[in-house]
Simulated assay, not measured.
Amino acid sequence: MKVCVYPGSFDPVTNGHLDIIDRAAKLCDKLIVAVLVNSRKNPAFSLEERVGLLEKVLKDRDNVVVESFDGLLIDFIKEKNACSIIKGLRAVSDFEYELQMALLNKNLDPDVETLFMMTNINYFFLSSSAVKELARNNGNIEGLVPECIREDIMNKITK
């Protein structure tokens, strides 16, 4: 079974993330959307909330599961017997950082590949940070996040 992992903070999940998830799921037998605990970030949503939002959005996708992890991604990859890491790229600045991480992971485990997927042109501008900023200021996030969680995001951010 070919298992891939798409890691991220997903704070919150956007339609850009969902596009990468749907495209990546076609490349493997099982896609693990891995929500990371990142001590360098102060997320707006708790780990449990982020996992819950993703599970709500992805409930009808048969080969996609949501899990959380803390620690090194490469250790999570080994634990799950995954062969590849999926990373979405928007801009050159994303590539520079993600290339460094991919090379580091390759150094830690030469058998694990990192696959870079370019964002859909419709989501090139989209980030979780932008969604949170719009929501904080009562902006319209329709079309930026999955419709089934839009109200959840607005309720959380505008409190």
Score class of each variant (00 low, 15 high):
10 F>E: 07
157 I>P: 09
159 K>R: 14
27 L>M: 15
84 S>P: 06
146 P>M: 12
112 V>G: 09
147 E>F: 11
86 I>R: 03
79 E>P: 03
42 N>R: 13
146 P>W: 00
157 I>E: 06
10 F>W: 05
112 V>Q: 05
92 V>R: 11
91 A>L: 06
145 V>P: 04
71 G>S: 06
143 G>Y: 11
8 G>F: 00
13 V>K: 10
81 N>R: 12
123 Y>C: 11
65 V>G: 01
103 L>P: 01
89 L>P: 05
145 V>R: 03
141 I>A: 09
14 T>P: 07
136 R>A: 12
19 D>Q: 03
79 E>D: 13
147 E>Q: 13
89 L>R: 00
24 A>S: 15
66 V>T: 12
104 L>P: 03
1 M>G: 15
87 K>R: 15
144 L>H: 08
30 K>C: 05
35 V>A: 02
27 L>R: 13
133 E>P: 06
25 A>R: 14
158 T>L: 07
89 L>E: 10
66 V>D: 03
109 D>T: 06
125 F>Q: 09
135 A>K: 01
56 K>D: 07
126 L>I: 09
50 R>Y: 08
120 N>D: 15
57 V>Q: 10
49 E>I: 00
13 V>T: 14
128 S>R: 04
76 F>Q: 05
56 K>W: 00
28 C>T: 15
106 K>L: 10
44 A>M: 14
59 K>F: 00
137 N>D: 06
118 M>K: 00
120 N>T: 12
61 R>Y: 01
38 N>F: 00
128 S>V: 05
149 I>T: 08
149 I>E: 01
59 K>V: 07
68 S>H: 12
134 L>T: 12
79 E>H: 12
59 K>D: 08
69 F>R: 09
97 Y>P: 05
78 K>F: 02
43 P>Y: 07
19 D>H: 15
36 L>T: 08
64 V>G: 04
47 L>T: 04
120 N>K: 10
61 R>W: 01
124 F>I: 13
57 V>I: 15
142 E>Q: 07
85 I>N: 07
152 D>F: 05
142 E>V: 04
113 E>V: 06
119 T>G: 14
80 K>L: 01
8 G>T: 00
146 P>C: 05
39 S>R: 12
93 S>L: 09
21 I>N: 00
136 R>I: 05
149 I>V: 15
43 P>C: 09
103 L>R: 13
95 F>I: 13
66 V>N: 00
43 P>I: 01
126 L>S: 10
134 L>N: 13
132 K>F: 06
149 I>G: 11
33 V>C: 05
116 F>K: 01
29 D>L: 03
88 G>N: 11
144 L>C: 10
28 C>E: 08
120 N>S: 14
140 N>C: 04
74 I>K: 07
40 R>C: 09
45 F>K: 02
99 L>M: 14
5 V>H: 03
10 F>V: 04
43 P>L: 07
33 V>L: 09
26 K>R: 15
100 Q>C: 03
46 S>K: 01
75 D>G: 08
17 H>N: 05
17 H>F: 04
79 E>W: 05
50 R>E: 11
154 M>W: 00
77 I>C: 04
103 L>E: 12
53 L>M: 15
133 E>L: 13
126 L>K: 07
110 P>Q: 10
95 F>T: 02
75 D>V: 04
140 N>V: 14
